[in-house]
């Protein structure tokens, strides 16, 4: 069975992409699914959050071919996270260089999908991409590789505006680049129902996306503490509201894949 490929993407930074990618990946792994998390963000924070060191795994994934010796080399960068069923290909600053390589070689949109095909023949259930907050080539290709896209967004005007830009990108990929994936939903993050601006932004999202607005992740100090302790929310405080809300996201993914 082929793994489901999920890309967590938004062109805006600081909307909770990495937290969402790590929490979703660990949540699925806790359900017994084999999950490979791939960090395409040059900041390499997926590794830090999981207690590992950022390294050029993503660079090699993006730039190497699919010959056997290249795959053997790349597989050295598939790290055991110390958590059952959860694997990581970490990234670091070299991922930015990979973007330059991809663009200079004019690689097609399908390049990432083709590159991860080497992992789709194993027993993996999910491949999750965390992307960088920029439009430079990698993000579009990571979205093109995805079966499902999740757009995290903080509930502020500027963030919801970036959701509009993301959806325009999805429509472009769908209509003119032959993308076959679909939008799982928009995930409001850092939500506080006491703030009028947040409620208004939620209302905007609901008007635009209807039932595709996922259960919001409320602003929580515990989520900010997780990376510092190299723990996921399910390890730090599994009973917290944030953990329950990410659990809802895990359930949603399971029901749609």
């Amino acid at each position: 069975m082929k793994p489901h490929i999920i890309t967590i993407s938004n062109q805006k930074g600081g909307v909770g992409k990495t937290t969402t990618a790590v929490s979703l990946a660990h949540g699925l792994a806790l359900k017994g699914k084999e999950v490979l998390l791939i960090d395409l963000d040059p900041q390499g924070q997926c590794a830090t959050t999981l207690g590992l060191t950022p390294e050029p795994g993503a660079f090699y994934l993006l730039t190497m071919g699919t010959e056997t010796h290249e795959t053997t080399f790349l597989k050295q960068y598939v790290r055991n996270t110390g958590r059952e069923h959860l694997w990581l290909i970490a990234g670091n600053q070299t991922t930015m260089a990979a973007q330059t390589v991809l663009n200079s070689q004019n690689k097609p949109y399908s390049v990432i999908r083709e590159s991860i095909a080497r992992f789709t023949r194993g027993n993996l259930n999910y491949i999750i991409f965390d992307t960088a907050p920029s439009v430079g080539g990698i993000q579009e290709r990571a979205v093109w590789a995805a079966d499902m896209v999740i757009i995290p967004t903080s509930t502020e005007y500027l963030s919801t505006d970036s959701v509009r830009k993301m959806t325009e990108m999805l429509i472009m990929l769908q209509q003119s680049k032959g993308w076959h994936g679909s939008l799982l939903g928009v995930l409001p993050t850092f939500y506080s129902d006491q703030l009028r601006e947040h409620r208004a932004a939620m209302e905007d999202l609901r008007q635009g996306f209807g039932d595709r607005v996922l259960t919001p992740i409320h602003r929580a100090a515990v989520l900010g503490e997780c990376p510092g302790e190299s723990k996921t929310i399910f390890e730090k405080d599994p009973e917290s509201r944030a953990a329950q809300e990410y659990q809802d996201l895990v359930q949603r993914v399971l029901k749609h894949s």
């Binding site: 499902m148 509009r164 679909s182 799982l184 635009g208 996306f209 209807g210 595709r212 749609h256 894949s257």
Partner: peptide, 13 residues
């Protein structure tokens, strides 16, 4: 046309 109607969305399995 609402934006959500222009994008393909993931259907429930």
């Amino acid at each position: 046309i609402p934006i959500i109607d222009q994008i393909r969305v993931t259907e429930k399995k």
